[in-house]
Design a protein around this nucleic acid. Structure first.
Lengths: 359, 359
DNA sequence: CGATGATATGGGTACGTACCCGGAATTAAA
DNA sequence: TTTAATTCCGGGTACGTACCCATATCATCG
């Protein structure tokens, strides 16, 4: 018979071992589901763990297993072309990384070219080879993203979607905008700016038609239209898709439209390319048209301030990056529950409050 | 002569000890500034620490010193009277508390009666006696708050202001709204709703006149006025202070004002009591007056939805609580730098986006 | 010069968990 | 029955830091 152990109450694993009258190592095996434990002891130990409602001490755990956690981030390049939009999420990622570095977490960011599926797939491959423990990605290209997440699932690596969602995937969580709702809100903002007989021009500016990004724009457009029908707003909605994202091309198209439809009172641009439109209006001294767009970029702020753009709809890009990393941290290290999606608040940014959204 | 130590590279304190050729305990004394180290060794060890750019391992530290950190929170009671406003910051505090509990931090919340300075002082006293390591407080009453923070400074306890700031204090940080800016933004929102010859009515509803809260309202009012003068808006601004916060009393005053000034087009209420005003307008079927107010309470949302209130200006009350606690955590446990103030974004909440701000 | 006290220093253990390794118990094969 | 293989279990050490306690060193005074 095993000799009676000391009965002074301990805590954690030790206490389990004491109560179940087994060695620490055995408890450890049970907790980690390692083999080498008889059915009998297994149940005994499990019962004690249950009784104690044992919660492992994160600190002790992190110290003992000096395991480093490596997170990978896959987002578009921070380019002039995209108005440096992805700088903000990258900053948020950075901020989170600093905060949890002392817990043994490192974060590596991979970029891809928004106009090149292959660069996305290439970075994805490199991530898969890199042996990462968690992944944060902007699923820009549908097929490539699906292939990637499937591989992650095989390897049992949790991944978080950011900025764009692919529903029905087994992502740990989605963090980003509710596009439809933001368009709906856009509809309301339009209604504040428009006069009874005016027309509204919705502008989608995007190079690719068949990628996820394009669908994003359409979701927003749906939202706007839905607000109009839902609130019985009679103003006519015009619409134009511009696939040549060059500023000159945008300028030309916009001028054409305005010439053709002179009663256009509001232009609603479904992404940050609103800047190109604003630039055009400013250049041609068109000041009877109000403009609403998306994302608070440096350039957009300028047009907000000089009154060319009235509203920008903005969804906390920095916080998206921050929360994405923290979701992985909570899940993998702290064992906290993570909500399966988190829609960012839809911020209305105007000339007067934009300073508070820029950081 | 001390015998030569092993030279295999270690990390952390051990490596310092090895390089400086002293014992671990000595290094420890230096790091914690404890006495019992000769000037010579002190400098030697400090030099090595410098060279290595030594960063203590938080995990090891937390494990060794099983010190528990206790944070105290001092906020107003969550009452019907205040529209349960403080529920949100309390929730944020709770969320942060859960997140850092595994790092050995506990959070205790103390409440006070907004109408009773003594209850504030009483809770403050209890906190001071409680031996807390960090404090988050809403400095509602000027004198009492100053006495409290002074006591904290004496005891070397860091404190964070939330929701209201008292400038020039040695608070670790301030987290809350920029009141003036929010009023300024309010001015812009008014301009969207007002017609050329309309008058604007600013309403301050607050029981106390001389407490911090009252000053808050005045700051917002200043912001509005400043927007009007700055943007050369000619509409007349009317103003009324209501110190009887009872709904009946508010109703009476509002009706009086509207009778006296029938060209009132917009009512701007400087706090969440906007609900009382909305209630009054709704009751008397007054629908030609637009309403702007503060804070997204359950009751306010209702009037937002049925169109009585157009805009609510809102400053992330939940996040204020969350960030406040995290600031203490970053400072005390993680040794991270904390910005000396953090102004919350000024959210514009409308019928269409309010759902995203409620949680 | 020895006793005393203050100052300086090092050894060692503990925190809660992970994991290696050797040995006991059990079972299968000889 | 002995031996080998297998399964099961416990002892012990490590992670990086904090802190107690014992000892060495040194100045001071009787």
């Amino acid at each position: 018979m095993a000799k009676a152990k000391s009965t002074k109450p301990q805590k954690g694993v030790k206490e389990i071992a004491r109560r179940a009258n087994v060695a620490l190592a055995t408890v450890d095996r049970v907790i980690h589901g390692r083999p080498g434990v008889s059915q009998k002891t297994l149940e005994k130990v499990k019962k004690v763990i249950e009784e104690m409602n044992y919660q492992p001490n994160i600190i002790g755990r992190r110290l003992a297993s000096m395991k480093e956690y490596h997170f990978a981030v896959l987002i578009p390049e921070i380019t002039e072309e995209s108005g440096f939009f992805w700088q903000a999420p990258a900053d948020g990622v950075q901020q989170a990384a600093e905060e949890i570095r002392s817990m043994g977490v490192s974060v590596t960011t991979f970029f891809f070219d928004q106009n090149d599926k292959r660069s996305f797939a290439g970075s994805a491959r490199r991530i898969l080879r890199g042996g990462f423990d968690g992944i944060l990605l902007a699923p820009f290209f549908m097929e490539e993203s699906l292939a990637f997440t499937k591989a992650c699932e095989t390897k049992n690596i949790p991944y978080v979607f950011i900025n764009s969602d692919i529903p029905d995937q087994k992502s740990l969580t989605y963090i980003g905008p509710d596009l439809y709702a933001s368009g709906y809100l856009g509809g309301q903002l339009i209604s504040y700016l428009i006069k009874p007989k005016d027309q509204v021009l919705i502008v989608n500016i995007s190079r690719e038609i068949k990628n996820v990004k394009q669908n994003r724009l359409l979701r927003k457009e749906e939202g706007v239209r839905s607000y109009f029908t839902g609130n019985k707003i009679k103003n006519e909605i015009l619409k134009i898709d511009i696939t040549n994202v060059d500023e000159k091309a945008v300028e030309k198209k916009i001028l054409e439209m305005l010439a053709q439809y002179p009663r256009t009172g509001v232009i609603f641009v479904t992404n940050s390319r609103v800047v190109s439109v604003a630039k055009c209006l400013k250049k041609h001294f068109i000041d009877h048209v109000r403009v609403i767009g998306y994302d608070l970029l440096e350039s957009g702020m300028e047009y907000l301030k000089n009154g060319v753009i009235d509203f920008l709809i903005c969804q906390k890009p920095q916080e998206q990056g921050y929360r994405g990393i923290m979701a992985l941290y909570h899940h993998l290290i702290l064992n906290l529950k993570v909500a399966d999606r988190y829609y960012m608040p839809i911020d209305i940014v105007t000339r007067e409050n934009c300073a508070y959204y820029k950081n």
